[in-house]
Design a protein around this nucleic acid. Sequence first.
RNA 1: GGGCGGUUAGCUCAGCGGUAGAGCACUACGUUGACAUCGUAGUGGCCACUGGUUCGAUCCCAGUACCGCCCA
Length: 1028
Amino acid sequence: MPMEKTFNAAEAEARISKLWLDQKAFAAGANAKPGHPAFSVMIPPPNVTGSLHMGHAFNNTLQDILVRWHRMMGDDTLWQPGTDHAGIATQMVTEREMALQQEPDRRTMGREKFLTRVWQQKQKSRGTIIGQLQRLGASADWDREAFTMSGAPGSPEGEDGNFHDAVIKVFVDLYNKGLIYRGKRLVNWDPHFETAISDLEVENTEVPGRMWHFKYPLAGGQTYEYVEKDAEGRVTLRETRDYISIATTRPETMLGDGAVAVHPSDERYAPIVGKLCEIPVGPAEHRRLIPIITDEYPDPSFGSGAVKITGAHDFNDYAVAKRSDIPCYRLLDTRAQMRADGVPYDEAAKIAGRMSRAWLVAKGYATPGIAEQPFTLSESEIDALNLVPDDLRGLDRYEARKRVVEAITAEGLAVTTLKKSVDKETGAEHLELVPYVESKPIMQPFGDRSKVVIEPMLTDQWFVDTAKIVEPALEAVRSGRTKIIPPSGEKTYYHWLENIEPWCISRQLWWGHQIPVWYGPSKHTENGIAKNELAFFCAADQESLFDQLEDYYGSVLIVEPQNPDEFWQVTENFRFAVNAGIADKLDGKLLVPIYRDPDVLDTWFSSGLWPIGTLGWPEPTPELTKYFPTSVLVTGQDILFFWVARMMMMQLAVVGDIPFHTVYLHGLVRDAKGKKMSKSLGNVIDPLEIIDEYGCDALRFANAAMASLGGVLKLDTQRIAGYRNFGTKLWNACRFAEMNGVWEGHTTQSTAPAAKATANRWIIGETARTLAEVNEALEAFRFDTAADALYKFVWGKVCDWYVEFAKPLFDGPDAAETRATMAWVLDRSMILLHPFMPFLTEELSGTTGKRAKLLVHTDWPDLPATLIDQAAAQEMSFVTTLIDDIRSARAQVHVPVGLKADLVATSLTDDARQAFQRNETLIKRLARIDNVTEGAAPKGSIAVAAEGAAFAIPLQGLIDIAEEKSRLQKAHDKLAKEIGGLKGRLDNPNFAKSAPEDVVMEAQSNLEARQEEAAKIKEALTRLSDLG
RNA sequence: GGGCGGUUAGCUCAGCGGUAGAGCACUACGUUGACAUCGUAGUGGCCACUGGUUCGAUCCCAGUACCGCCCA
């Protein structure tokens, strides 16, 4: 059955994909040749509930090109696929789905049932993204599909695997090495998901904001001389003040202020440093007093120069508070509402007030009148204090803000400014005092998933002490053991790692790897059990946990209370029993309460182990030996910190080796105008729709062609259409071959046919040249250069010229070798294009000959450089240039295409004559020439110059002399300009002296060639002038 | 504020020491033994600006302007 006019992608893709999968063509090690190296790639695991977007399509196309290329070369290739459990995202998707199905919410359901429900969701969603990756032609070893939560407790049948064990083992190891610790720290809190998130999951966005200015009255009505000076030291303002002015964008956090800070060099406030001032909000009879302290943080030139310090709700303030031992009072609950727990406000405020005065004493600011006993509270005692006034408790943070501002303003403690207003009726001007509120853009943190405003929150969390494991990760890149492409990625990598912050890895979610730490009552002393303190037991398995418990508590019964209240109740009993010395009387019935940390690990903690985890670690698997470290990681530059840097740190910390030799970072895919694709903008290009419309190969080739290093990738459907056309072009070249019997009895021939005809020798050489270009480009991860080389070869050389040359050759004595050559060249084209356009090429390969193997396993060519025939290349260059010039000349003087003209060779060197004669049929056909003679140029002819030759095309009466003159003049002018440049250079004595010899030689020969050509055109011009 | 990039044809981008290339778009012509998802020919550029290095700069260096992205 003859070939169709175009490739039917929609029909063929599914069929070919099935063929590959059925034959397990992508299995690890498939097509590997003995002695060849391993080539391994880890897929960046997409979210298990995700669906394919353009970024995935791009990323996976590049990986697939590399993988298919290496597999065809016979390397032992593994492309490891899998998905990520994506904590927040998956929990979110499941809860949304549950709401839709009117199922009970997760709290009603309880943790265990909810997790079962998420596993169901996971199993339902997983096929979507995997199927979409397969549609893309991704040649990963699908039988090895991994999951970052495989083997977790409660996982259903079929979800077994090592990943959970690996994650837990790493946590325990790092904990035992002191690289993971728990602490009360200020973290980014997502009030929507009610969990901590890491710095990286926060997006800072500029939004319109307001800055209020308030007066904090000095304690006891004290006053001071407030003096402002200009740059020259002249006094510009001097007044007596009984307050200090503060600016804030978050008035509701004033309730948690622990101090007011000024810069140590700020003379304006020097008189009141170490004194107390009053927070101007809350019940008047219980106003809290806080100290005025110095710190480097306040900027004297910004606002009033004084800042309030709210350690529990601002990262900068937290640092100041830590430096000066200022207490951090938490005001918000997990949903970012004003706290409603704890003792009433007046009690809490009293305690906080004592803290302030004790601070003054402790820091040596104490004045005789208010000397106090030392008074300190533990972190958790401070955290238990709720300083939200009773009437604000339980309010939303924004509602509380409104009320606070209103109250302060009503009391006259807002800083005011004069505002001029004009009475519309009378035209009279009024001046009135209004609260001073600046409208200005402020940076606000948002959760990257929830999109709600993130709240800095003082909570107990687990952290990786990244500073301790960062050095090997830095060293590996510095030394070049791991190479990051493009190099700018390395700079970014260094910059981040050199300034790395502790990594908060605990999340208050249910879906994830639960932290393997149990808490029990702390034995503070040898004999007693302390109140409110915990002992930690970090264990990878039950056996180890029990061992640790026994070591610590001795032989006792362990219970796991269901909730914290119960825990503390049992703890209290236990404590009492032990402290009362009656423990051993209970005859082993004494119960030690233990509870497991309910939090789960950050998803990136587990995906940070992707390279070793997917290869079976901690078991010493053969895959680990063979494929680790992996060859290359292909990923977006947006997850350099999230994932790449963490994999580097973790693999080096856990197995002491780099996870990959090369990291290839690519940009983000945007729309044709460079805009981020987003549903709200409506500019999302769905890769599956593109595949439906243009075929997968077109999308893949476009992706490869776009993959220049660095920057944004703007995707244009017109360009994809262009590459679809490119596929069609190759398809039709093969169809042409079919019509000319090229494929009859064809089998794959790896060695090039021995050809005599110049055109055949030339195209064989071009094939070898292209192969070298593609190899070189892919070795350097220049997918764009490789795609470009293939495009130019197939379209520009094979289709534009070689197919045309073949037409006359098929009628001549070289027909047989031409058929063999064309078959070989088109075969090579399919092979070289296969990593880029796997479907179309596999289909072509299958329909054009009898093949020993599928194209996916066909040997990547190894073509000797001797195939590049310089003489043939030179001769074909002469031929194609001549044809181009004749066509151009004809077109410019409007010779009808249908008219076959004659050609007169007016001068020919021997070489040129031979070259011409050998290819005369080709030239005549393509330049539409009838008869060829040698002799003088006839009157009324147009002139064409070539290397070593000059030709005339007699067209008397057909052409406009003036037009021809202007054409020649133009060509001459262009040459003259080039000659001028070359001459100028060569005449410069410094050029000859300083430039390399070959450059001088090249310029010299260039000049001669240009001059020769110019002379011929000049001659022709003269002839025309003679004609009139 | 800190870091990393970018500024080349109408658009999207290559090139990165020897005075410019591609694809698309545009113009004209055109169904010649595969291909109109095509062919042939053409139009189009002080390579952001200012200095410097060099025999020679779009390319290297410094600065300026503007535009991105990341981190505060």
